[in-house]
Design a protein around this nucleic acid. Structure first.
Lengths: 232, 232
DNA sequence: ACCTGAACACCGTTCAAGT
DNA sequence: ACCTGAACACCGTTCAAGT
């Protein structure tokens, strides 16, 4: 079938809010979140920009919808774990849920910024938290402690921690010449970088591994919560 | 002196990069961060938009500069504490530094979003971290543990934790009728909200106090770090 | 109902030109 | 050196109009 024939004979998948939002995620994956404009999104769907307004009220709803799409993927994966988790303690179940959610964010590196820009709560995010609260509740937490725990975890509960500055630069070791130049102004910082950057020079992961750091922070919080729970 | 006379006789404070950035912070304080456009910022300074490009290369530099201005304020305040901190243990010194920094963010509620949107590192933020690293180092931390600690603290080291969704709605208790409607879909979440929202019904702070939650998360992390430090 | 085309009110930024 | 005016390439969104 030639392209020309296809254009005439194959019926278009009918447009829908769902298809608009899925397309927005694909566009962000392919070209970055700044490429997600109403005009470019419409172009990708083969319609005019104004036609989008039949499926979403405005661009904010597109971004809200992106959050829902991503978190729905997360929920699909973590809820498959819950059946297996019944026999496991709360800490292992919570840890596994969070690290599974994190895998989805690793597939959409632009997504944390979108999540942090939202102010309306998403139905899928509520569903994710509902499941996490269930795990803590079954583990013997009071609702009061669960509430504190969710605030303490923040975005870590969902599987990401937005790094301040240079998340990409963490991959490569800092330039020794640059460190020399900075040593006068930031003596302690440079002291740290000089030592930490050389701990494992042969590592292919680079001197600073995102996954390790995420798990370190997560375990610190989970351990602390377990201590409080046990004392209560 | 009449306004008309003033316009002719009083020499304008000469424009500078510094004055542009200070004005950007004032504009964000007054009208929100979305009001900080090149055109509106220029208007506020009594010049045309294009004149701004003599002081900054582009709008990204304005946002980078805003981060520097805010963090400079923080550094001014926390470095005044450091003299007094000499006799204090690392935990108290770090806690005081962070809670002092937090006060500045409470004065600029739009600032966390700007910080999290930056990708270049700021000289003032490096200076802030240098001081914090010094406190931990004096407290007996290895550079390796300090490195993990900074990642675990994330933006909490600087005094803020970006809440996901509804940070403003936390002030008022959730609507009981809405909770009833949500109970079927989110049973555990509603269970938590029903209990936690009624713990202190007479409190003027509302059922969920930002400061309390921030300190809870911060102490959880600091306690965990102290445990690791002591074991090492 | 679904989609469009023209237009509006804004952006950030360029360029060449003024003093 | 500092500042400007006109223009360009883009936004999100309105409106009235088409099928």
């Amino acid at each position: 079938v030639s392209v020309g024939a296809e254009q005439k004979t194959v019926p278009r998948v009918p447009l829908s809010r769902e298809r608009v939002l899925l397309s927005a995620v694909e566009l962000a994956d392919a070209s970055g979140i700044e490429a997600v404009t109403m005009r470019r999104l419409a172009e990708r769907l083969g319609i005019e920009a104004m036609s989008l307004y039949h499926y979403v009220a405005n661009k904010e709803q597109v971004l809200d919808g992106i959050v829902d799409v991503i978190t729905e993927t997360i929920n699909d994966r973590v809820e498959r774990l819950d059946g297996v988790s019944a026999s496991v303690d709360w800490r292992a179940a919570a840890r596994r849920r969070i690290l599974t959610a994190r895998e989805v964010f690793l597939e959409h590196p632009w997504a944390p910024r979108v999540f942090e820009s939202r102010t309306d709560s998403s139905a899928q995010v509520l569903r994710y938290h509902d499941g996490l609260i269930g795990i803590l509740r079954d583990g013997g937490f009071s609702y009061d402690l669960i509430h504190h725990a969710l605030h303490a975890l923040g975005s870590r509960a969902l599987g990401f921690s937005q790094e301040l500055f240079d998340p990409a630069a963490d991959g490569g070791a800092p330039d020794p010449a640059m460190l020399d130049a900075m040593a006068g102004t930031y003596p302690k910082l440079v002291g740290m970088l000089r030592e930490v950057a050389h701990v494992d020079p042969g590592s292919t992961l680079g001197w600073c591994d995102d996954q390790t750091e995420f798990e370190f922070g997560l375990d610190l919080l989970l351990d602390g919560l377990e201590n409080i729970r046990r004392r209560a």
